[in-house]
């Protein structure tokens, strides 16, 4: 981890975007995004399919850099540093901003090696066994797997795999964790476990989560951004934030008609 990226960890807002426009080639996927993400909070992104929630999320750890046609206009600041400045190394960004994906994607390695993968990359010198145990405990998976750490991560059930992926993400002790519909493949009980987990994790981390589950957003998050999508004159369907506020406000007293319609399930 670089001193450059670590230096400014103290500020209250972790991310701050200014007039962010996100493009895939000529296609404007998301426009005019200006939001602040508060430290040690859970921010939910909700909105209809294709409105650019995943696109926005993946800007924050520069994972979109893997897509050739991707580029942005405007600014994203991470603790007051321009995240897309040329001297910022995306690999270092991803070491501070972890990600959990929609589909559980454990490595075809042992449970232990899945967790140890990230710390090893960072040259972790401490007690690896302890770190693995602690990460699995934080992800509420320890009791399920403590006797079979050598078993393949890919042999776990879907819900266990997803918790393994969460444990893997927190093992590197990131600053922020991005979650793209982490519960979409899970049963209600696993989902609740993960929501409980989020509440514990936010003591230490800042969490941003994309979800299609309204209850989940209202139960688990502190802030909610409602995205919508609108076709422009050229027929491009561009996403934008309709309303961004405290979660209670979004769900109980939204200012916009569209938000009201969406959160109450009368959308379309």
């Amino acid at each position: 981890m670089t001193s450059r990226l670590q230096s400014a960890r103290q500020t209250d807002s972790v991310f701050h975007t200014e007039d962010l426009n996100i493009y895939y080639g000529n296609f404007l996927a998301v426009r005019d995004l200006s939001i602040d993400i508060a430290k040690n909070s859970i921010t939910a992104f909700i909105g209809p399919s294709g409105c650019g929630k995943s696109t926005v999320l993946r800007c924050f750890n520069r994972l979109n850099d893997l897509i050739k046609s991707f580029h942005i206009k405007g600014k994203i600041y991470y603790h007051d540093q321009d995240l897309y400045a040329s001297e910022i190394d995306p690999v270092e960004v991803r070491r501070q901003v972890g990600m959990v994906f929609q589909k559980p994607n454990p490595f075809p390695k042992s449970i232990y090696d899945n967790i140890a993968f990230g710390p090893r990359l960072l040259g972790y010198k401490g007690d690896m066994d302890e770190l693995v145990e602690q990460s699995l405990k934080q992800a509420a998976l320890w009791d399920d797997v403590k006797d079979k750490l050598k078993a393949f991560g890919t042999d776990l059930s879907g819900g266990q795999q997803q918790r393994l992926c969460i444990a893997r993400a927190i093992a590197v002790q990131p600053d922020v964790i991005l979650m793209d519909e982490p519960c979409s493949a899970l049963d209600p009980i696993s989902t609740l476990k993960i929501e409980d987990l989020l509440q514990e994790l936010k003591e230490k981390y800042t969490i941003m989560i994309v979800t299609h589950n309204m209850q989940q957003a209202s139960r688990a998050s502190d802030y909610t951004a409602f995205f919508n999508v609108e076709a422009n004159s050229k027929g491009q369907r561009t996403g934008y934030v309709v309303e961004y506020d405290r979660t209670e406000a979004i769900f109980q007293s939204p200012k916009e008609q569209a938000t009201q319609a969406y959160v109450s399930g009368r959308f379309g």
Partner: peptide
């Protein structure tokens, strides 16, 4: 699978 690639990059590999 592309997901594995993304998982690795996502961890800062």
């Amino acid at each position: 699978p592309a997901e594995l690639r993304q998982a690795a990059y996502g961890l800062g590999a």
